[in-house]
């Protein structure tokens, strides 16, 4: 074990929905500054895997360590549940998620969205949070949209706003769940650019995506998932340029 604990470690996660086993023992180690990309066809379990990492889905088995702290589970009538929800709340505050459909809170302005969790979950002062939020909005190119409501912004703007909201938590790890899949093609570029900047800055990120160029250029590690298992993993040059399995070759083949 390293002297400083890993930001996030996941061991042997399994997940069943009824009879179907969607995750069959997945593990992952994120070191500080890692950008880990999860790729795979739809239904491969990559989004479910990501959602297990902050317990939006409850894994049936496996261990989860955030900054070296292991999440405690207990068995109940309904299956396995976290033993201490306060621990979960604490752990979630260290991992912030960016969703496919942005999920900005519709009744709040963009600025209010960004300061909401820092003020009410982390207990920051409002003044401090606003200052930080304005700087972050500036960074994602939305300084002039602070007082807009989500419905008044384009999808690309909403997603960049959602990234600012995630950054405002000063997270250990950022989780991205297909952040560009719901966007019109011409809006994808701005969002990817913000994500590249974050990677260059040394942020620890776990990204579920279909953007192969992003995976190749930015990630430190690529995991190819198929039917709930990691079929291939390694540096992008290895996995994406010299795929071993036939399935991955097909997955990567240019589509017409």
């Amino acid at each position: 074990m390293a002297a400083t604990p890993l930001p996030l470690e996941v061991r042997n996660i399994t997940k069943r929905f009824g009879e179907t086993e969607v995750l069959k023992g997945l593990s992952l180690q994120a070191h500080k500054g890692d950008v880990i990309t999860l790729i795979g066809a739809s239904g491969s379990g990559k989004s479910t895997f990501l959602r297990c990492m902050n317990l939006l889905e409850q894994p049936n088995e496996g261990e989860l360590l955030v900054h070296g702290e292991e999440i405690q589970f207990k068995q109940t009538r309904h299956g396995r549940e976290p033993a201490d929800w306060n621990q979960v709340v604490r752990m979630r505050a260290k991992l912030s998620m960016v969703f496919q459909s942005f999920n900005l809170w519709a009744h709040m302005t963009l600025l209010e969205n960004v300061i909401e969790a820092p003020v009410h979950v982390l207990g920051k002062s409002k003044k401090e949070a606003i200052e930080h939020a304005r700087a972050l909005l500036e960074r994602v190119g939305l300084a002039d949209r602070a007082d807009y409501y989500p419905a008044q912004m384009s999808g690309g703007q909403q997603q960049r706003g959602a990234i600012a909201r995630a950054l405002a938590m000063d997270p250990e790890v950022m989780l991205f769940d297909e952040p560009t899949s719901a966007l019109d093609p011409e809006l994808v570029g701005d969002v990817l650019k913000v994500m590249r900047d974050l990677a260059d800055e040394g942020r620890t990120m776990i990204v579920v995506t279909h953007e192969m160029a992003f995976a190749r250029d930015v990630s430190t590690q690529v995991l190819y998932l198929h039917q709930g298992i990691v079929e291939e993993a390694g540096p992008p040059a290895e996995v994406l340029d010299t795929p071993r399995s036939e399935r991955l070759k097909q997955f990567l083949a240019p589509k017409h």
Binding site: L56, R92, A93, L95, S96, F99, N103, L104, W105, V121
Partner: peptide, 10 residues
């Protein structure tokens, strides 16, 4: 999605 975001943000 809004509830999920609230959960994800602790």
């Amino acid at each position: 999605g809004e509830i999920e975001a609230a959960r994800a943000y602790g």
